[in-house]
Design a protein around this nucleic acid. Structure first.
Length: 483
RNA sequence: GGCCCCUUGGUCAAGCGGUUAAGACAUCGCCCUUUCACGGCGGUAACAGGAGUUCGAGUCUCCUAGGGGUCACCA
């Protein structure tokens, strides 16, 4: 059996969106799993839609995701070039060969004529189909008009009737009546091939054995097959993938503000979490496993696990995956990861960021959401004294004052300022008073944090703030309670 | 509209003729607890509808409905 060669062939029209990422991922996994090659090809035959920087963005995203290609524009390979615009000269001979065989023809129809034709069809309520107006021009006439510099395209010459079909590894046999098909353009008037043509030529000349792509190509693949048959080429295995949806009726799309892979990274999601979650949208391993590294995915991936129906992207589940991946980091890694995020609200030099990382990690779902939870550290917030009221702790502003007044000297006199020392001192007091922990700890935490909810308890906060700042805040709070 | 495809809880999904119809996320409740979280335990919740085939159908067939895709000198 021939070596597996797969390809991911994005158009450089923008960032790598999640659907593209998933297609690239599956394509990569399949190649790696079969010890094959994963090829990256840039399909830039539409000069109008080309976006500056898009190619680099695609490289960046794929490398970040770990989807390293074996052949591609930037690293070369035996089947180059890997950018379609650089292959421009390769397509015309194949198209001409098709013309020789009567499977294609030159067409000189103007845009105006086509437009009129379209209007006619529309008026009749029919689907537009090119009328083969140029299909029977004589060879001489064609030569003459080309020589005269008349612009032309080359169209596929479809049979009047019959069936075109192919077999998809996922969807099975797909057949359409050719009478419903249009003589598609193979070579555009600018000399560039259309996707329809380039994809067939390139997949064949690059030795691609398995084609994975979005299901939007499902209904046009039968006519690509006619091309393979005309050339007598072996067809690749087709695997069409259902889309990732934003909701039941809408595909995930940049246009509606749905995030790209890079957007998610910028929002504080971890690449491994994203890749892992995306892998599970439309594929399942057949067992209970949910967490996979790229290598594990390579082992586990199977065409059998692919789903035919569309999958809705669920941000909540991604959050959960991110949480799990955050938990897998060691503290050092996590500390490094959060520094850029938390630095926007606190001065890292003022706090023990290692300890902060320890405290934050078990309650961190998304990195970007950390900063907003630390505001109280930098500066004592102007808080409402009603925060001292807590029904379950049986505390209020009246009970808080005496407790704080008793605690203050204990803390002040603590020989060392550590969480443990503070804990022991305060808990001794609690034991002595015979009250509930919360009766003392609630007001303490409020008094030094000023926030109803904090990502740490009273001792941790006091430790982070340091002796001076803690005592200063305590005094401020007591003064306010007295007033 | 024609053609193609899809249809199990809110979401991802297992299931491949016989199950009390898994699991995960979300949600709800309880426990733990110095707040928020984490964690533990438990609950609610699904075979789109209708005909067939069969002793037996989520699993097979057909119809209907809903949804998606496609009908470009875009990919």
């Amino acid at each position: 059996m021939a070596t597996v060669r797969t390809r991911f062939a994005p158009s450089p029209t923008g960032y790598l969106h999640l659907g593209g990422l998933r297609t690239a991922l599956y394509t990569y996994l399949y190649a790696k799993q079969n010890a094959g090659s994963f090829v990256l090809r840039i399909e830039d035959t539409d000069q109008e839609r080309y976006v500056e920087g898009a190619v680099d963005a695609i490289y960046r995203s794929m490398r970040l995701a770990g989807l390293n290609w074996d052949e591609g524009p930037d690293i070369g390979g035996d089947y180059g070039p890997y950018v379609q615009s650089e292959r421009k000269g390769m397509y015309l001979p194949y198209a001409q060969q098709l013309v020789e065989m009567g499977k294609a023809y030159y067409c000189f129809c103007t845009e105006a004529r086509l437009k009129g034709l379209r209007a006619e069809y529309e008026a009749r309520g029919e689907t537009f189909k090119y009328d083969k107006h140029c299909a029977n021009l004589s060879k001489e006439e064609v030569q003459a008009r080309i020589a005269a510099g008349e612009p032309y395209v080359i169209r596929q010459n479809l049979p009047e009737q019959g069936e075109a079909s192919f077999d998809d590894a996922l969807f099975g046999h797909i057949a359409v009546d050719v009478s419903t098909l249009d003589d598609m353009i193979l070579i555009k008037s600018d000399g560039m091939p259309t996707y329809n043509f380039a994809n067939v030529i390139d997949d064949h000349t690059m030795g691609i054995t398995h084609v994975m792509r979005g299901s939007e190509y499902l209904s046009s693949t039968p006519k690509y097959n006619l091309l393979y048959e005309a050339f007598g080429w072996e067809k690749p295995v087709y695997i069409h993938l259902s889309p990732i949806m934003a909701n039941a009726t809408r595909k995930l799309s940049k246009r509606y503000g749905d995030p790209s892979f890079e957007d998610l990274m910028n929002q504080g999601y971890l690449k491994d979490a994203i890749v892992n979650y995306i892998a599970l949208l439309g594929w399942n391993p057949g067992d209970e496993r949910e967490y996979f590294t790229l290598d594990e995915l390579t082992q586990a991936f199977s065409l059998k696990g692919l789903s035919k129906s569309p999958a809705v992207f669920d941000m909540m589940k991604l959050r959960h995956f991110n949480f799990e991946y955050v938990q897998k980091m060691n503290t050092q890694e996590f500390e490094q990861a959060i520094l850029p995020w938390i630095s926007t609200v606190i001065d890292p030099a003022r706090f023990d960021t290692h300890r902060l990382a320890e405290l934050l990690q078990p309650r961190c779902e998304v990195l970007s959401e950390l900063a907003e939870r630390l505001g109280f550290l930098n500066e004592m917030p102007e808080y409402d004294l009603e925060l001292f009221f807590n029904k379950r702790m049986k505390t209020n502003r009246e009970t808080a004052l005496p407790v704080l007044e008793a605690l203050y000297p204990l803390l002040e006199q603590s020989p060392v300022w550590s969480e443990q020392a503070l804990h022991d001192a305060v808990m001794d007091y609690v034991a002595q008073q015979g009250c509930k922990n919360g009766f003392v700890l609630w007001p303490l935490r409020i008094a030094i944090s000023g926030w109803e909810n904090t990502p740490a308890g009273a001792f941790e906060i006091a430790g982070l703030l340091g002796r001076e700042e803690t005592l200063r805040r305590l005094r401020t709070s007591m003064d306010r309670l007295k007033a």
